[in-house]
Amino acid sequence: MIALCIFLWSLFLLLQACHEPKMLRFARLQKPAWLQRTRALRFVLPPMVLGVCVAERASTAIPVWVATFSVAALLVALGWAGLARYRELLLTTAEVRAAALRKE
């Protein structure tokens, strides 16, 4: 159940990150065109996670809901940092290659 909650939160936070211009700039990404179609999903996911937590055990739903959010946010932050680094290296390599080709 905790794994499912973390997965759903990660999905929500990924969509949230795709909406943040600062995050997109950091990862050198363009705002994807399909993002508009996922607006509803973005708002549905948090209550859906809460529903999963309540269904599992109502008395402990809120702590589990909040704790899984924190872990998912940490995972997305780490993943996004990795993606940004990968894209930075990719673009730097491409620029170096282009410069080398221009010289030739």
Partner: peptide, 28 residues
């Protein structure tokens, strides 16, 4: 909330670590 730049300048990187750890885990 999820802006973590570990390969930026040292102070920037530590600030990001501090903010991500604090804000993300703020409820706890």
């Amino acid at each position: 909330l999820m802006l973590l730049r570990p390969f930026a300048a040292r102070l920037r990187a530590w600030l990001d670590v501090h903010v991500v750890a604090a804000v993300v885990f703020l409820p706890f």
